[in-house]
Design a binder for these strands. Structure first.
Lengths: 188, 188, 188, 188
DNA sequence: AATGAATGAGATTTCATTCAT
DNA sequence: AATGAATGAAATCTCATTCAT
């Protein structure tokens, strides 16, 4: 989706990258903004489908559901790494409507994560007076895998990134009485 | 440095914002890239001076030094909010050299934070097998104050952002035996 | 290639003259300098092909070969009059490399003329202790047809210019014993 | 008057070269065109005074007067080498009036040379049916000392340039019966 | 459906000219 | 008289978009 090196994305570069002509792109997208919106939407859609699915598949344990949700976020980001960076980089070119829409979608996207964190608190296995912050931070750390990939790739791969970040984040919120129980997630 | 609303930064817009003519900017900067580099460097320089100073002023307690460092990062970011966003948004236009230089500076910039975290671990008051990750996450959360300001400003101001994030982050790393001691930082 | 009257050549003017858009020019040339270089190179290439051909076609007589060479130079200049003037006028905008390249090509371009003059001297039909100067002067007089066209066109057309200049130049170098033989070239 | 290397002449470069401020230049000249016009006029004025003086000083012999005139032209050009090149290079920026004026002055400037050539023909010591061409060519060869200095300086200094060109030119026009008499000018 | 040459509005950059000091 | 910072119109160059093939 973007060129390494010269990271500007002109339509001609985009077309060359995709191996099609510029004209063809305009058959499917009305404008460059439409493409950006479509790309971003695609990522957000991936969140919308894969995160709830992962939560569902994780069973009933709230902590494991949080872990599953975070892992799913990170995996989606990893699959759309360039698109995720694009979101931060190109959103200036969107008009106010486009940007508002994306912000709204991003907040909606974090909803399942907020929900499982709240579940955990309600169940007494997590402790926090600001579940929204906990959830949003996890989302940020997922984004960071794309944004700061040049840094993290020096020492981690996707799986070790997920477990390291998860261990750190959970240690802050898993109730002391339950920490033993999740030793596998909380790490050494 | 940039307009809210139409977030593209043309030289015309830049000049208008600064209240000078386009030509004058070129008396002080060789190119648009030079301006971007200067802006980013200015932020990184602010980190380089203010973070160590804040750490110094915090006394000897490692946890309070970490807290001071994180607070200083966030305050610098807050003072250069638009510039910080610019770093994520415009770095594509820099050439490879410029980007490499900025990445290097960013890593150097996080060094003091890494140092105080390590101090805390050595002193036995913090517990972590990945102090670099702890430090880098704190840096990310400082950046997030700029990047996701549209979100956080709904519920927090700078001070409450700092204390909320700090409480969360420290709960993950302060040794259980010392948590009582830092109740003021760890929150509720 | 340029407008009589307003002789400045902006890209806009250039595009208008060529009947295409500015953008299209940049599809074929990387910069304005590239265009200038291409135009100049085209003239020098015309010299490189047409002058040797004219010499060849002139037979074995060294004096007639000199005459043919000079005529060919003048005809190429005449066909590229504006481009030739451009060389003198715009070469300032070229970088050092470009200018050096053009100077080298110009000297190479005069080589065939130098060769036929030297032939004539060796054959004893021309007399000069500085054949390079004789050759370079002839090249200059060909250029002059473009540079000083506003002057020469008052009294001469291309053919009369060629024969008048040739008569003058040859009188200085054809050996006295052979002057009779070339009365048709040396004039009244 | 011009920078070697980057040969474009901006007003700021001009001022720096002259060691004064841009503002000061505008106290003495109304516009950049005025400067160019003044520079060119200065050269043409130098011709107007020094060439007739040199002719006068050369005595009565028409051939020696031609030689003196050509030498004077070349010396003036040599003293104003950059200005002479400028004439060819920058005249595009002048308006139609300015260019017309310069062309008129150039023709007037060649008048003394034309006069001495005609004298020589009338006296029977020179032979030519086109004295204007003979005179104008000599003027061109004087200009060439500036225009093609990069070439000629490889093998000649001002004096050897003058005598070599003069020898060549005179051989074409001095009547055969008088060539012995001017052996010192006509060369080996 | 697909192409990519062509467009031209808009971006960056330069520089002759002005003017407060 | 002299400066040089400041201006802004005009130049060069880019690239999203169109359209003939």
């Amino acid at each position: 989706m973007e060129r390494e090196g010269s990271e500007a994305v002109s339509m001609q570069a985009l077309a060359a990258e995709a191996g099609v002509s510029v004209g063809l792109i305009y058959r499917y997208f009305g404008s460059k903004d439409d493409i950006l919106l479509a790309v971003i939407t695609q990522v957000l859609d991936a969140f919308a489908t894969q995160v709830p699915a992962a939560i569902e598949a994780a069973g009933d344990d709230p902590v494991r559901r949080v872990a599953a949700a975070f892992g799913a976020y990170c995996r989606v980001i990893d699959e759309h790494r360039h698109a995720a960076v694009l979101t931060y980089r190109e959103s200036k070119s969107l008009d106010a409507d486009g940007r508002a829409r994306i912000k709204r979608l991003e907040v909606e996207t974090s909803q399942p994560l907020r929900a499982v964190v709240s579940e955990g608190i309600d169940a007494g296995v997590l402790v926090s007076d600001d579940p929204d912050l906990v959830a949003y931070n996890l989302l940020l750390l997922a984004h960071a895998w794309a944004l700061k990939h040049w840094y993290f790739e020096q020492t981690k791969n996707l799986d070790s990134y997920i477990s390291a970040q998860l261990a750190l984040a959970l240690r802050a919120v898993v109730a002391p009485a339950h920490q033993q129980e999740y030793a596998d997630l909380l790490g050494g």
